Simulated scan of single mutants.
Amino acid sequence: MTPGPGPEGRSGPEPWTGAGVVLRAFEWSDEPDLAEVFADPEIVTWNPGPPEGALAFMRERNDWSAGTHASWAVADAGAGPGPAGRLLGSVSLHKIDRDQGDAEVGYWVAPWARRRGVGAAAAAAAAAYGFERLGLHRAYLFHAVENTASCAVARRAGFALEGTLRQSFRYADGRHHDEHLHARLVTDD
């Protein structure tokens, strides 16, 4: 087994592309955008920012050496409005389990990139990376039932709704919320 999730023990993000997005390492120039993202009420509700700040977040996401996650900044591939390469979101494969051949997908989309298909493209690209580069069989994700935008992203990215988990995760409001479980298999279209 290789020490990291990438090929031959990769210690940092391997660039990857999806429909209109590029998955890349976080860059120092992303720090102002991250500060804005981590102050956004929608992000804070479902994906609170790290207490250590943007720089620690970038270092953690760019360090793949433990082999437990593959994380990327989501950037504009140049097809849409805005400068090519601008930070649009984040996507990760967490809890990579090579024995079971699965991983959890997590994502968020910056306020300036919403309703453009960025989240679905990023989630689909991360799943494709897991299937093609890591040999995964299944990618799954969870979201609070109330987070209808995330449900739409998951479905557009090809993640089938499998069920509802009752009071399965405590979010920033301190309450345990019901969550939807979505999954995508390597054999899915």
Score class of each variant (00 low, 15 high):
90 S>A: 10
150 S>R: 13
108 W>T: 13
85 G>E: 05
31 E>W: 05
23 L>G: 02
161 L>F: 04
153 V>M: 09
126 A>P: 04
72 W>P: 03
42 E>G: 15
65 S>G: 12
114 R>P: 06
21 V>E: 04
142 F>P: 01
32 P>W: 01
118 V>T: 08
149 A>T: 13
98 R>A: 09
81 P>G: 10
113 A>P: 11
81 P>S: 14
105 V>T: 00
163 G>N: 05
153 V>R: 09
101 G>T: 04
31 E>I: 04
111 P>K: 14
32 P>V: 12
38 F>C: 14
39 A>E: 12
30 D>T: 06
30 D>R: 12
115 R>L: 01
38 F>R: 12
60 E>K: 13
149 A>Y: 08
54 A>D: 09
77 A>M: 08
155 R>G: 08
141 L>V: 08
163 G>C: 03
41 P>L: 13
47 N>F: 13
97 D>W: 01
142 F>Y: 14
64 W>E: 10
112 W>M: 07
65 S>C: 11
87 L>E: 09
46 W>R: 09
146 E>K: 14
120 A>G: 01
21 V>R: 03
41 P>K: 13
94 H>W: 11
144 A>I: 15
98 R>V: 06
43 I>E: 14
112 W>T: 11
52 E>W: 04
131 F>R: 01
58 M>N: 01
46 W>Y: 14
115 R>Q: 03
152 A>N: 13
54 A>W: 00
49 G>T: 07
95 K>V: 06
157 A>Y: 02
129 Y>A: 00
42 E>P: 06
113 A>D: 11
30 D>H: 07
